[in-house]
Simulated assay, not measured.
Amino acid sequence: MFFIQAFSFFFGNGSGNYISRQLGTQNTKDAEVMASTGLFYTLVFSLIVMLLGWFFLEPISILLGSTPTILPYTRQYLGISLLGTPFIMGTFCINNQMRFHDSIITF
């Protein structure tokens, strides 16, 4: 989860920073393009993480400290958790983009 959250913030903060600067200069077209691009790359990366996680499910479980007794449960839990990776990463990315968007307040 730490890995997923860190990369979500990477894409969200990076694109959000650019979006904020473009909105500050009233350049909404570039801000819209960056919002879409940031989310797209987040979703592509999340699908790669999900597929690699499924492919290396057992080694990851053992690396995280799973014993042979709980390995079947760990694999099942991690497999289900990986299904939500695109949704979690997309949500975190959009959340950070919106935080940067809200920092632009015009009076």
Rank of each mutant, 00 (worst) to 15 (best):
S20Q: 10
R99I: 11
E32I: 02
Q26I: 01
V49W: 08
T67F: 05
V49D: 03
R75L: 14
I88G: 10
S8H: 02
I19M: 06
I80C: 04
L39T: 12
P86G: 12
I105H: 08
N95K: 13
T91K: 12
F40A: 14
F107W: 09
T106I: 08
F11N: 00
P86Q: 10
I60D: 06
F40Q: 03
L64I: 03
M34H: 00
A6Y: 09
H101Y: 12
I48T: 13
G12P: 01
I88V: 15
I48E: 08
G65P: 07
L47M: 14
L63K: 08
F100Q: 11
V33D: 03
K29R: 08
S81W: 04
A6Q: 13
F55P: 01
C93R: 04
F45D: 01
M50P: 03
Y18H: 04
F45G: 03
L43W: 08
R21T: 02
N95W: 13
V44Y: 06
I4A: 01
Y41V: 05
M34A: 13
F56L: 14
I70S: 14
F107V: 06
I94C: 10
T69P: 00
F100I: 05
Q97W: 08
E58M: 10
A6T: 11
I70F: 12
G53S: 15
I70D: 14
L78A: 14
N13Q: 07
F11G: 01
S36K: 15
S81P: 03
F3M: 13
I48Y: 13
P59K: 11
Y18N: 01
I105F: 07
I62W: 05
F107I: 07
G53T: 09
S20W: 00
Q76S: 14
P68M: 10
C93T: 15
L82F: 15
S8L: 04
A31Y: 00
V44E: 02
L47G: 02
T91D: 07
R75P: 00
Y41T: 05
S20Y: 01
G65H: 09
I105E: 08
I94T: 11
L82C: 09
L51R: 09
F2E: 09
C93H: 08
R21F: 01
I19W: 01
L47E: 04
Q22W: 02
Y73T: 10
G24R: 00
F10N: 07
Y73C: 02
C93P: 05
L82A: 13
S66I: 01
F55T: 09
L78I: 12
N17R: 04
F45T: 12
F3W: 08
